[in-house]
Design a protein around this nucleic acid. Structure first.
Lengths: 344, 344
DNA sequence: AACGGCTATTGAAACATTTCAAGCATCGTC
DNA sequence: GACGATGCTTGAAATGTTTCAATAGCCGTT
């Protein structure tokens, strides 16, 4: 009767001598069924090795038990920390988390979103390639709970969770100025990326308000936010004529900073004495670098957790209002900007 | 008639003036439906914004379109590279990939597996906390296609994909011996971890066959394979009396090696002149370290891709035989073992 | 005009669950 | 001993697809 099939509620019901509905009740509202039959049903389940079919459950109940996060760049540990924060929140709410990776490709992002729509996930968290992409509007229009992570989107068409990147740029450069640097490079790009633009803006603002010459804040553009690009920026830096060469660099993220650090040390520079370096994100490897990296810390896990809470609110609370949450970054000073034995 | 609901095949059929079955055919075997009606149906879908309900599809068709990977440690980039390899293979097969993370906790692993069973995923790839855990047998017994990644399991109860860790240990230590080191530390632990034990075994084998004194291969145990543990190992290393202190260290993975590297440089040692260091895995940050790290490379993405292919074979090919695939590791020599300007 | 062979479409059953109104005991109360 | 009330259990409908046997239409042959 069960020939090889994986057992269904029907089989359990038969084995326990009760009806379908009772088995379902045991799973979904155990309090309405008497202790005696509950126990009988549970034993039957265990004996048969019954595992509830989630597709059928979801089809009938109309509600799924999963959240999804579409991350921007799988090679950047920052996003994995964000994902971990989401996962923790999801675990608390007894939900599963689907993790996808767009690898910064808009087409791939769209494929993932389409599939998530088919899965009828409860909500989608995303760090988008382009926050203005029309396929994101599409989601809102469909009424899928949506939260933008680490970016913001025009108007309040949906929730977002981000970090004050302008402020991040300010504190990074302020720190360098305090250390006595008068010629500083900003390494990052492409500046069409929201974060890069804002971190640069913050850097320029504080530089100006400190009364420094704008020409002494040098923009060193990169093609991407990777270690390799950081190295290449280092080479360009070394190629500058000595009187124009900066004594410090503020990198738009830690991967760039690590690349720059590596290239500089390899070229015989002393860090921080010949070149001070500040990164952004404070990923785990920042502290673990051979010269521990000063960095602007974002509350990565917190970011993910907050985003998950927003998406759950949107999914469950009918009076939900879209919010733009913003966290404040914080400078973590380490050896890459502060000489050993030299007081702050 | 459609009041707010998300449209179903039925709505599409009505809008296009055809039957349910035809709409389904348009999606699943477009070749059997005439160009004219196909076009009509497709227009109706676009107008209504129809998105197929995957739960219903899966319930009826009995087959899901997802694979799952349960990774061991989300903080280790190695596993993300493996995941990327799986993802690529999944993409080629037009499947989605569910990524879970057990964070080395057996209980969490079990929760994930249970949920994946409920989802009726096509197959499960896993780097288990303990390859002998009974809940893995449970999966095999249920007939879920299963592949163990980066570990092996007794007998041929299921497929596995791994790297020859004994050989990895041999080539690492052989390389150090070639560089003239006569006193070498092995850093890693706990040695209940399969990889750690086998890498250590390989190290001991080659050490002996080179005719060196076993007492000069020093085992420095760690609690986990993390950067912090690497630093702590560095402190213990520094604490050894000079005549017993090794001139080289072979670390069971790159995170340990990076921690050791950082601690050593911070303590004023020159790498590789005072201490040569070899890691294992060749994660991206290995090459990017301030002293680029010599490491034993595992074909990480290849590992994932091969595992995905095995699981797909098991899922689709009735004549599938379990296989234990093993890749060979390869030494990547960099500055952490080879002095600049000194020929290999 | 009947027929056979195509191709394109249809209709109904099936998938495994949840939900809910209705039914059935059992019990205490008058 | 009738009556509600209470507490469990049941049976059937509903969810959105896919699948497949059956049918309808069409064309060319005889």
């Amino acid at each position: 009767m069960l020939n090889g099939r994986t057992p269904s509620v029907k089989d359990v019901a038969a084995a326990a001598g009760v009806s379908l509905g009772t088995v379902s009740n045991v799973m979904n509202r155990p309090e309405v069924v008497s202790a005696r039959t509950r126990e009988r049903v549970e034993r039957a389940m265990a004996e048969l090795g019954f595992v509830r079919n989630e597709s059928a459950r979801q089809l009938r109940a109309g509600t799924s038990r999963t959240l999804a996060y579409v991350m921007l760049d799988g090679t950047n540990p920052f996003f994995h920390d964000v994902a971990q924060g989401i996962e923790n929140a999801a675990e608390d709410a007894d939900l599963s988390l689907f993790i996808c990776n767009s690898n910064s490709r808009s087409a791939r992002e769209e494929v993932h979103l389409d599939r998530l729509l088919q899965q009828r996930v409860q909500g989608i968290l995303i760090t988008p390639v382009d926050p203005a992409a029309p396929h994101l509007d599409e989601l809102s229009r469909r009424g899928v709970p949506l939260v933008i992570v680490d970016r913001v989107r025009g108007a309040d068409s949906c929730c977002s969770v981000s970090v004050n990147d302008v402020l991040g740029g300010r504190i990074a450069v302020e720190h360098l100025a305090e250390q006595g640097h008068n010629r500083v490079a900003f390494v990052g790009g492409p500046d069409s990326l929201g974060q890069v633009g804002e971190r640069l803006q913050g850097a320029r603002e504080i530089w100006q308000s400190l009364g420094k010459d704008p020409d002494d804040l040098i923009y060193l553009p990169t093609e991407a936010l990777t270690v390799a690009e950081g190295r290449s920026a280092g080479e360009r830096l070394a190629g500058l004529p000595a009187r124009r060469r900066p004594t410090a660099a503020f990198c738009a993220n830690d991967l760039l900073a690590l690349g720059l650090l590596q290239q500089s040390i390899g070229a015989g520079l002393r860090v921080p004495d010949d070149l001070a370096i500040v990164g952004f994100d404070d990923i785990e490897f920042a502290a673990a670098a051979a010269v521990p990296l000063t960095s602007v810390r974002q509350p990565r896990q917190e970011l993910g957790r907050a985003a998950a809470q927003l998406v759950l609110d949107e999914a469950t609370n009918p009076e939900h209002r879209h919010q733009q949450l913003q966290f404040q970054p914080e400078l973590v000073a380490r050896a890459s900007t502060v000489s050993r034995g030299r007081a702050l």
